[in-house]
């Protein structure tokens, strides 16, 4: 594992000058997951290789005990660093894996005081812009490359987005 970490650090070190040339104002949105991954989370989820066996998830992930996970063969990891997903800071990102293969990503968003628009409206608009799809009748189901993106309102204005491969969507209950 030390070798993996060292290799990842070397990759980061090599690419560091490129990041500093990024001119995103105030580095807003250019923090957390995007740096080790070299791309936004949703772009990473859209990559075919993300869903293949033995994928290396970039960034910091930690074991996570999901009370909703009833299947002992499914391991849940939580992203332990900030991530903007669909342009909005996520409060929690988890990955569910079985046999070293990602089954699903679950992203939870909570409304912040600085946001004027309803969180679900903002996410719907942004996912529509990302995928180029309207989201169907309920504006909550999108397809992008070979993934499904499902959007669901939670309690207290929170929103849960699940991302899974189109062929074998697995939903944990």
């Amino acid at each position: 594992m030390k070798k993996i970490a060292t290799s990842l650090f070397l990759v980061l070190a090599i690419h560091m000058p490129t990041w500093t040339l990024q001119a995103i104002p105030n580095q807003i949105g250019n923090v957390g997951f995007v740096n080790p991954a070299g791309m936004r989370f949703e772009n990473f989820a859209g990559e075919a290789k993300t869903w293949k066996a033995n994928v290396k998830l970039p960034g910091n992930w930690e074991n996570w005990s999901d009370p909703k996970n009833q299947d002992s063969h499914i391991l849940v990891y939580r992203l332990d660093m900030p991530a903007d997903v669909f342009g909005i800071r996520a409060s929690q990102v988890t990955a569910q894996l079985k046999n070293d293969k990602v089954l699903q990503f679950k992203i939870v968003f909570e409304k912040s005081s600085s946001q004027s628009a309803s969180l679900i409206d903002q996410l719907t608009t942004n996912i529509q812009s990302f995928t180029g799809e309207s989201g169907g009748t309920n504006k909550n189901s999108f397809r992008y490359k070979k993934i499904n993106i499902q959007l669901k309102g939670g309690s207290n204005g929170a929103v849960v987005v699940t991302i899974s491969p189109q062929a074998k969507a697995v939903v944990l209950r």
């Binding site: 594992m1 030390k2 993996i4 970490a5 060292t6 990842l8 650090f9 070397l10 070190a13 090599i14 560091m16 080790p36 290396k56 998830l57 970039p58 960034g59 910091n60 992930w61 930690e62 074991n63 391991l75 990891y77 332990d80 894996l97 070293d100």
Partner: peptide
């Protein structure tokens, strides 16, 4: 599986390696 870089010890040799590599790149 745990990929938390911040909590994984890279090791002194690793850090020195990184530093030398960055200097060499420059």
């Amino acid at each position: 599986m745990r990929l938390s870089l911040s909590r994984l010890a890279v090791g002194r040799a690793g850090w020195i390696g990184i530093l030398l590599f960055v200097i060499a790149q420059a």
